[in-house]
Each structure stands twice: as structure tokens, then as C-alpha cells.
Amino acid sequence: MLTMKKLEIIIRPENLETLKQILSAHGVSGMTLLSAMGAGNQHGEKDVTQLQGGNFHINLLPKIYIITYVKDISINDLLVDIHESLTTGDVGDGKVVVSALEDAMRIRTGERGEKAL
């Protein structure tokens, strides 16, 4: 069994279609996508929003959070393509976290390892 990796990718919403094209070009066919709010080094936008019950300081920016799994052999080129295609040079471009993936199983078939990806 070859080594597998889990990618957690946090990007600006406007970069989603580009990221999907990059993943597809690298043979990544599946992903889980979540809409998220977050702040990193840019500390978010400081805005006061009036909601029922009072005023709230919101310093979070909209982000897209993607989880996907890849074969280890394709990871370096994939990371280079993500960086080169999505960077603006400004804080808030996002992050990619790579973790070792010990095993995976497709529930429908019981396939394990890379066959489950």
C-alpha cells in the first residue's frame, strides 16, 4: 500500500473554481467542501454588525474549507500548482495542511487504502 495524504485546504471563495481545476488536473476526483469564516494574519475585517440583541464585532472573513485525499506521489506538484495559481501575495490567501493518512475505506464496497480514494 502506497502512502496517502489528507489535504485540508482553506482558500478565498473566489478561488474555488481554479482549485477544482487544479485538483482535477492532478487526478483528484473527490472532495468535501464547507463554507467557513476565519481570520489569520490579516485579522479579518473589523466591522460592527447589528443583530437582534445588540451590536457584534465581526472580524472574520468568508473562506472555503476543502478536505481531500491524495496519493503521496502526487503531492509536491499539486502543492506547487496550488501556490502558483492561487497566490496574490497578500495575507489571507489561505493554507494547505498535509497530514499522513494511515488508511481509508469506501463504505459502499469495503475497499481499503488507495483503492478507496
Rank of each mutant, 00 (worst) to 15 (best):
47 D>Q: 12
35 S>E: 11
59 N>L: 07
40 G>D: 09
75 I>T: 10
98 V>F: 07
30 G>L: 15
35 S>T: 15
33 L>Q: 06
54 G>H: 06
61 L>M: 04
107 I>K: 06
107 I>T: 08
111 E>D: 10
98 V>P: 03
28 V>W: 08
106 R>Q: 08
30 G>D: 07
67 I>K: 00
88 T>P: 04
63 K>A: 01
60 L>Q: 08
60 L>D: 13
23 L>A: 05
37 M>A: 12
91 V>L: 11
41 N>M: 15
72 D>I: 11
35 S>H: 13
34 L>Q: 06
111 E>I: 01
25 A>S: 09
86 L>A: 05
103 D>T: 11
76 N>A: 03
18 T>I: 08
17 E>S: 12
88 T>N: 06
49 T>V: 14
43 H>D: 11
106 R>S: 09
59 N>P: 00
30 G>K: 01
42 Q>V: 02
97 V>N: 08
70 V>Y: 09
55 N>P: 06
72 D>Y: 11
107 I>H: 01
17 E>L: 14
75 I>C: 08
59 N>D: 12
91 V>D: 12
102 E>S: 14
37 M>R: 14
66 I>E: 03
43 H>I: 03
59 N>Y: 06
109 T>A: 02
106 R>H: 07
69 Y>C: 02
96 V>R: 01
73 I>E: 15
96 V>Q: 00
31 M>H: 05
57 H>R: 14
22 I>F: 02
46 K>Y: 10
18 T>H: 05
44 G>S: 02
54 G>P: 03
69 Y>N: 00
58 I>Q: 01
38 G>I: 09
52 Q>N: 13
84 E>F: 10
99 S>W: 12
90 D>K: 05
94 G>W: 00
27 G>K: 14
28 V>S: 01
49 T>M: 14
20 K>D: 04
84 E>W: 02
91 V>G: 05
105 M>G: 05
32 T>I: 09
82 I>M: 09
88 T>G: 07
80 V>I: 14
99 S>V: 10
101 L>F: 01
46 K>N: 08
78 L>K: 00
75 I>S: 07
71 K>G: 13
89 G>N: 12
107 I>V: 09
64 I>M: 14
82 I>L: 01
55 N>S: 10
22 I>L: 07
73 I>L: 13
93 D>M: 08
62 P>F: 01
69 Y>L: 13
103 D>E: 05
41 N>G: 13
52 Q>K: 06
106 R>T: 05
103 D>A: 15
103 D>K: 13
84 E>D: 15
29 S>R: 11
58 I>A: 08
